[in-house]
Design a protein around this nucleic acid. Structure first.
Lengths: 160, 160
DNA sequence: TCACACACTTACGCGAACGTCAACGTCAAA
DNA sequence: TTTGACGTTGACGTTCGCGTAAGTGTGTGA
């Protein structure tokens, strides 16, 4: 995930945009928000390996649901450090909260994968119109119930 | 996660909103989008256990990054089923794509948790101002580099 | 010198997912 | 019967994360 490059590498906006599958506009937008500060050659932006690493972190942050401002905050930790202990404490609290959200999210992702997988089996089954193996049937019925929101709350949503 | 309730339970909009920590407006919004269809007593909405299950699924879907329209699509699988094979095939493709995205996301979440956890150790260390144990120091430095996006791409982002 | 790709800034626009009034109905307790 | 909590339906406002022109350089090859 993300290829290593030489520390002294340089990239144009388009190169970086292509690599990360975003538009140049997106990178300019991040810059405008103060999340990256590429060097300039004249007016043109030149991205270093460090800039590239930041972009990678930004996009990974996005994928797990961080807002851009939150990601910026993480990227700005250096400033928090210099700011001393008063700034550190609330930052810690937000970090803890964030980690908890992520742990919840991990659980959600696991369930979603399992459920969609079951749904997939179910759909493929319909397509081939064969008699399904027993375990697939069980999962499929579970999904069916879930998809139509008819799951019996006593059996389905149990286990706290 | 999500308490089981009797199948014949009924809820007001406020009860459900409170339980799921959303506003009544949000539930009406989902209804307006055709994602739930609570019964009415007069003009007032009455939510069944099934409605509640759907709300749960909607919110879980949201947390893993599904758009509301996508969630609706999942909830509408019944219709897809009735629609026959032509509608089923593209749905399968979208499902497969979605599962792949989720697998990527699972990876991202794992990394994010690990990195934030390291960042947390690092911050707590600064707070207590003690000499950290070696393993914490290593992780902390990794985070520091990451947070400031100065990680050496040759060592840090390797292993493709 | 011309064309063309690619870059830049400025600025308005947009869809998603609600928030926030406004104006009104309803029902139970005081 | 008035108060107050709760409900309803519009309809407009807001934030986020960019998209999309519009107009203007800049550099490179034919």
């Amino acid at each position: 995930m993300i290829k290593p490059v030489a520390p002294d590498s340089e990239f144009t906006i388009r190169e970086l945009a292509q690599e990360f599958d975003v538009t140049p506009r997106t990178l300019r937008f991040y810059e405008q928000k103060g999340m990256i500060s590429p060097a300039r050659r004249g007016a043109a932006r030149i991205y270093s390996a460090a800039d590239r690493a930041r972009v990678d972190l930004i996009l990974r942050g996005k994928r797990v649901g961080f807002a851009l401002d939150e990601i910026k905050e993480i990227l700005d930790l250096e400033a928090i450090d210099r700011g001393g202990r008063e700034r550190l404490e609330p930052a810690i609290e937000r970090f803890v909260a964030r980690i908890q959200v992520l742990q919840q999210q991990r659980e959600d992702v696991e369930r979603a994968i399992a459920e969609l997988q079951a749904g997939l089996d179910w759909m493929r089954e319909r397509l081939e119109n064969r008699t399904p193996p027993d375990d697939v049937r069980r999962r499929a019925r579970a999904f069916e119930a879930l998809a139509q929101a008819r799951l019996d709350p006593w059996s389905g949503a149990s286990a706290g």
